[in-house]
Amino acid sequence: MNKLLSLVTFIICFGFTVEHKEFIERQGQVTFFSYTSVENIQATNNQVLSLFNPTTSEIAVSILMRAFVFKKSLMHEHFNESYIESDLYPKATFNGSIIDFDPDQKETQTRIIKGDFTLKDRTKPIEIKAKITRTDIGYTIEGSLDVLIDDYSINVPSLLSPNISKKIEVSFNFNYAPYEE
């Protein structure tokens, strides 16, 4: 009886002190910039999904390509129909983990995230420098990276090649909250 009582007490105590294992961001922001002397192109996606497990340092990101918002409708059309072919490849994904991450550190940590980025069915290993901060409810992760369009078979017609940079600057900002399953 005593054993049973201790077990119940342990479960109750443990249940109240257990920390969330996974954190979710349903509306992360990813912005990309293409700078050329002819034209500057910028698009933002505010609906990026990401899951983060601070215990294992693993991070997964899923980006819906059609959710990028452009200023001009022709840019949106070219991006989805010609460059990314969103009908065939609707999502870009990233799976990786943060190197030397300390989930308990309260100060902002600058760390390298290593993982695989998949765009248009082409997967490349990448390393991203990111800032990770603990918040009241979870974590924020922000950073930037350069994506080479040749690495992901993005074909730009020769007529438009002066308008599109070969190196696309991508920045991201995720605010994670506990994932209630």
């Binding site: 349903r26 609906q47 999904l49 899923s62 819906l64 059609r66 959710a67 918002v69 609707p90 999502k91």
Partner: peptide, 11 residues
């Protein structure tokens, strides 16, 4: 309608 990830996304 833009598609879906975990949720259905409309802009």
């Amino acid at each position: 309608l833009k598609g879906f990830l975990m949720d259905i996304i409309l802009l």
